[in-house]
Computed example of a mutant assay.
Amino acid sequence: MNHAIFVAKVIEKPVHLVYKECQSMEIKVKFPSPRQKNSKNELKILLWGDDKGDFLKYYKTQDYLIIEGTLTSTGYINKENEINEVKFIVKKFYPFLLI
């Protein structure tokens, strides 16, 4: 199972996604600092259900979050090269620093 807990910083405004009757929200986050220069430190998280409203109500860009959930990876090949996209499906999230 790909269960994980991360501390991340919100770097972009949320994007609302609608697929048939399901609605979700996708948010781009960044880890505080990468260990290696060639490592990726950005990730897209997905929020479902009541978590979307809570996020919009209490959080904004540049906030730090503790996120808990499931890590997913999809890979596909386009004309130039192979692209691996990693997303994180959030089960719970908490504020990291209250200022």
Rank of each mutant, 00 (worst) to 15 (best):
K44N: 08
K37L: 15
G49S: 11
K57L: 14
V7C: 01
N81Q: 14
K57S: 12
I99V: 09
K79A: 15
A8K: 06
Y19I: 10
F6S: 05
I11F: 04
K13L: 10
N84P: 10
K87C: 03
I67P: 02
S24R: 05
E85C: 11
K60L: 01
K92R: 13
K92D: 04
L65H: 07
Y59I: 10
F96S: 07
I77D: 14
I5Y: 03
G69I: 03
D51W: 08
Y58R: 02
T72E: 15
E82A: 11
I99A: 08
L71G: 07
F88D: 02
T61R: 08
Y59K: 02
K52G: 00
Q23A: 01
E82I: 12
Y58W: 09
E80C: 15
L65Y: 03
Y64I: 04
K92A: 03
K20L: 06
Y64W: 13
I67R: 06
F88L: 08
P34K: 14
K44L: 00
K52A: 14
V86K: 15
L43A: 10
K9H: 09
F88N: 02
I67L: 04
I45Y: 03
W48L: 06
Y94M: 07
V86S: 12
V90Y: 01
D51A: 04
K9Y: 03
S39V: 13
K60Y: 01
Y59V: 08
A8L: 06
G75F: 05
I27D: 00
L17N: 14
D54A: 07
L98Y: 09
Y64C: 05
K87I: 07
V90K: 04
S73L: 14
A8N: 05
Q23V: 08
V29C: 02
D50A: 13
G69N: 04
I83Q: 11
K79R: 15
W48S: 01
D50R: 12
T70H: 12
W48C: 02
L46D: 09
I99N: 09
F6R: 06
A4V: 02
S73G: 12
Q62I: 01
G75Y: 02
I27K: 00
E68T: 09
A8F: 05
L47V: 05
I89Y: 12
V90C: 03
F6G: 04
I45K: 07
V7H: 08
L17E: 14
K37R: 15
F55M: 00
I11H: 04
A4N: 12
E42H: 08
E21Y: 09
F96H: 08
N41C: 11
D54M: 01
K13V: 05
E68L: 00
L71K: 05
V15N: 05
N78R: 11
S24I: 00
L56S: 07
E68V: 10
Y58T: 05
F93W: 02
K37F: 12
K20D: 13
M1T: 10
P34H: 14
K44M: 02
Q62V: 03
K57G: 10
W48Y: 07
N38H: 15
F93R: 06
P14W: 02
L97A: 05
R35F: 01
L46R: 13
N41G: 09
